[in-house]
Computed example of a mutant assay.
Amino acid sequence: MVTKSVQILGDAGAGKSTLIGRLIYECGGLELPQLEKLERNGIREFAQIANFYENEHMPQLFYTPSSQYVVDESKTPDVFLWVVDATVSDSGRASSHNLASLISTGHMRPQDNLVVLINKMDLTDWSLRIFEEIVRTFSTVNSITESKTSIIPISATRGDNIVEAPKEYPWVGSILPSQFAGCELVSAKPLAYILD
């Protein structure tokens, strides 16, 4: 099994800690002693898991079928996850500008993958229109990075499209680039499969 580094950045309040906690919890980063310690400390929310690991100086890690991922603060991780809040009214324009700035100035240099996660889709009732608007905003990101780039909708709180697509919203698992003006960055795969 290969160990890779991942850094998770994005908008303030976009759900980065919730995403880390969800990945640790759902993708095998918790062992029984750690789970017992979380329960003893009254930790019940995914964002609290990420904070607990950080406070305890424990590595934040999770697994995909072929790799182990360690959350890292490096400027050059193997994978960058950029988290966007789908509920923000500017269709991700400020977030897209911030991402482009970090990449173009060299403050962010993913080695393998850049994954733009449109989070909190559950709070938009999985609105395809909102997702399309945000995809259009981020569609030029691929031109400023050499990394493989993907854009996917998720709900870190509910766990939708982390390991499997939400069944209530079939459009998520059947996304085609032709739906998004040929934007090849859009993926129908859940996050764990994009990382694998």
Rank of each mutant, 00 (worst) to 15 (best):
V2W: 06
T3M: 06
S5A: 02
S5L: 08
I8K: 02
I8W: 01
A12H: 11
A12F: 13
G13A: 11
G13V: 10
G13P: 13
G13H: 08
A14R: 09
G15Q: 10
K16N: 08
S17F: 12
L19W: 03
G21D: 02
L23W: 02
L23S: 09
I24E: 00
Y25Q: 01
E26H: 07
G28R: 00
G28T: 02
E31G: 05
R40C: 02
N41R: 11
I43F: 14
I43S: 08
E45R: 14
F46V: 00
F46D: 03
A47Q: 14
I49T: 00
A50L: 04
N51I: 08
N55P: 00
P59W: 00
L61G: 07
Y63C: 13
Y63W: 10
S67G: 04
S67N: 15
Q68V: 13
Q68H: 03
Q68F: 01
E73I: 09
S74Q: 08
V79K: 00
F80Y: 15
W82I: 05
V83G: 04
V83P: 04
V84G: 03
V84Y: 05
D85A: 14
D85G: 12
T87C: 13
V88A: 15
S91W: 11
R93V: 01
A94E: 11
A94N: 09
S96I: 01
N98C: 09
S104W: 03
H107L: 13
R109A: 12
R109F: 07
P110L: 01
L114S: 06
V115W: 00
L117S: 07
D122K: 12
D122L: 12
T124S: 04
D125G: 08
D125F: 05
W126M: 11
S127H: 06
S127F: 07
R129H: 13
R129K: 14
R129E: 15
I130Q: 12
I134L: 12
R136N: 15
T137V: 06
F138G: 11
T140M: 05
I144S: 09
S147R: 05
T149F: 05
T149A: 11
T149K: 01
S150K: 14
I151F: 13
I152N: 07
P153V: 10
T157D: 06
G159K: 01
I162K: 05
I162P: 02
I162E: 03
E164P: 04
P166F: 04
K167T: 13
E168I: 07
E168W: 04
L176Y: 10
Q179P: 02
Q179A: 03
E184M: 09
L185G: 01
L185K: 00
L191N: 05
L191P: 06
L191A: 04
A192H: 11
A192R: 14
Y193C: 10
I194R: 02
D196A: 06
